[in-house]
Design a binder for these strands. Sequence first.
DNA 1: ACAACGTACAACCATCTGGTTGTATGTTGG
DNA 2: CCAACATACAACCAGATGGTTGTACGTTGT
Lengths: 128, 128
Amino acid sequence: MSETEEDRADAWFHALSDRTRRDILRRVLSGEHSVSALARSYDMSFAAVQKHVAVLERAGLLTKRRQGREALASGDVEAVRSVGAMLTDLEDLWRGRISRMDELFAEHQPQDHEQDQEHDDRPDPTDR
Amino acid sequence: MSETEEDRADAWFHALSDRTRRDILRRVLSGEHSVSALARSYDMSFAAVQKHVAVLERAGLLTKRRQGREALASGDVEAVRSVGAMLTDLEDLWRGRISRMDELFAEHQPQDHEQDQEHDDRPDPTDR
DNA sequence: ACAACGTACAACCATCTGGTTGTATGTTGG
DNA sequence: CCAACATACAACCAGATGGTTGTACGTTGT
């Protein structure tokens, strides 16, 4: 994975690691909100909320649009999808582990494929 | 969302916000690794890597199993999926925004439904 | 015109974070 | 038995983080 890709991931996950920021992101994904409108929703100063919005913006999870004196913030669903894609990449690594376990098992028991369909205590790698 | 749910999310995203921890998670999702084996992979002290493993463990993204003097770490794919589910919940909020925009549009143009299939410059909310 | 509003940013502060070294304790191989 | 190994954890430190207040500046409504 490229170096800048890791930088983006750092910014994404750091931005999402604060519950106020996650809540802000929920609101701006649902629709545009001005920074001051957002600030009114939280029990903290306007400046604090503005800094949270700036973190989300730097991470690319949110964009701002100027309209008169207001800054309207809007969530970027493509960025959210990119974060989700990183998670599914992690899942794929796990699936690879299971495949390798299957190969190892087949190596030591290369007879029948149909026996023992029950007592499957490991999760199905193809479900979800 | 429940309070403890948000606490878990804080821990998840914070754990994932460090690239060394993401790399450790990749390795232990692919297969079990001892802490010292992991430590040998990074240009930092054993103690530093051990702390990263502890952060991932507290977040529930990894479990440790004792075998003799070694602690074998293994990634928990269910936790990774839970994080992914949070992201798709965010996407759903965005889809809701689009639905509301559609309703608003229908309200002002309640005639035909079939016109103008082209020039669709917004992403399809049902794709992915 | 001007007061109120919305935004931006700097300075400051307590706490958290990610690294270090050092020490203690259990496990294993020869 | 005991030296080497693997882990755990405490103490410490520099820098980042999340909050505060204060100041400055453009925009808007009356």
